[in-house]
Amino acid sequence: MSVLEIRDLHVSVETEQGSKPILRGVDLTIKKGETHAIMGPNGSGKSTLAYTIAGHPKYTVDSGSITLDGVDVLAMSVDERARAGLFLAMQYPVEIPGVTVTNFLRTAKTAIDGEAPPIRHWIKDVKNSMKDLRMDATFAERNVNEGFSGGEKKRHEILQMELLKPTFAVLDETDSGLDVDALKIVSEGVNRAKENTNLGVLLITHYTRILRYIKPDFVHVFVDGRIAEQGGPELADRLENEGYDRFLVGEATTA
């Protein structure tokens, strides 16, 4: 049973005013097959956690650890982390001019598996996954994220997740900017991956909306760089009704 463990993680980011601490001691354990929702107000450090797991060079880990089945993730390069089974669905996927989706997907799959996928099988897999995500076949010949709408970008992220079959996926505000139809399509994709590969999911979101379609096993509330409260799915319902004010007031009085 695979497990992703985050222990007392402190992370800072370089700004013009110097180093600014963002994460202040995060503890989190995710087992394969589990879905954890991380919720919190803007600026609480949710995305920083996502990018730190993936290894974005902008973030500096000051102390603490991230391990995957006991292996030090922080010692790995970005691509090594992906090959170890970690996946980040990005909030703002970048354009790669001149690189087609087809070429990109095949290159990534080859990198992850260590060998080129059998061609016939692969083409069928891509086609089916695209169909599941209601993506037009012409999509495959477009350049990565170039001219994609917000919804297309998110579907393209989930397409990659379904095809690359990671052990753990971090979904960074995948729900943001999606209309309800797109939200359902994307959620179905995540649920399919959970079912087919017993994917562990770290679902980062500002809103409870997506939790109607992807049922979390655990909910963690992120405030000011650490987990302020955690519980089961019922915590999400409470947040839906009360918002984050309760946490922000507490922060203001202790500050």
Binding site: G55, D79, R83, A108
Partner: peptide, 8 residues
């Protein structure tokens, strides 16, 4: 970063 995050 995007490409490397896909294992490349």
């Amino acid at each position: 970063f995007y490409l490397q995050a896909r294992g490349i």
